[in-house]
Amino acid sequence: MKNNQAELLEQLMEVGFVLVETNLYLDTHPDDERALRLHNTFSQKYKELECIYEAQYGPLKFTSMSVLPWQYVDEPWPWDVDFGKCRC
């Protein structure tokens, strides 16, 4: 896996973590406008990163697969990445 690909996956995971945490917080604090803005900002960032990743490396989810041949079978799956080996 290329370093740039691993970096994009890592960014997606970091932003995804923020989305899960802000979502959990908003479950108990639905009127917190600052938290809602933060969640919406990171939600947009996630969509942008996902779009960049999929344009360069193929689909991340089954809902993104619309082109044959299926690219994901030729590459390491996101959960198979060893990030320790990708960094120089």
Rank of each mutant, 00 (worst) to 15 (best):
D82S: 09
D82A: 07
N3E: 14
V73P: 01
R87I: 10
M65D: 04
V18T: 08
L9C: 02
T22F: 01
E50T: 10
N3F: 15
L19Y: 03
Q71F: 12
E50L: 06
F42V: 04
M13R: 15
P69S: 08
E7K: 11
Q5W: 07
F17Q: 15
Q44E: 15
Y72W: 14
T41N: 09
K47P: 02
A6P: 00
M1C: 10
L38K: 02
C86N: 02
L8S: 03
V20D: 06
E54Y: 04
E54W: 01
M1Y: 08
M65E: 05
Q71C: 09
A35K: 00
K61P: 07
E10V: 07
V18E: 04
S64L: 03
L49V: 05
M1L: 13
T41Q: 08
Y46S: 01
M1D: 04
K61N: 14
F17D: 13
N3V: 15
A6E: 02
L68G: 11
M1R: 04
Q56E: 12
V18F: 04
C51R: 15
L19H: 01
H29Q: 11
E10C: 06
Y72M: 11
S66L: 15
E7F: 10
D31G: 13
E50G: 04
Q11D: 11
C88Y: 13
F42E: 01
S66V: 09
E10G: 06
L26W: 00
W79Q: 13
Y57G: 01
P69V: 08
L24K: 09
P59T: 05
Q11N: 12
K47Y: 11
P76Q: 09
P69C: 03
Q11P: 03
R34A: 08
T22I: 03
H39S: 08
D82C: 09
P30E: 02
A35I: 03
G84D: 06
T41C: 10
F83H: 05
D31N: 12
C88G: 14
K85R: 07
K85V: 05
E14R: 06
E48V: 10
N23H: 10
W70N: 14
L49D: 00
R87D: 05
D74F: 10
V20Q: 11
K47D: 10
V81N: 00
K47Q: 15
E75H: 10
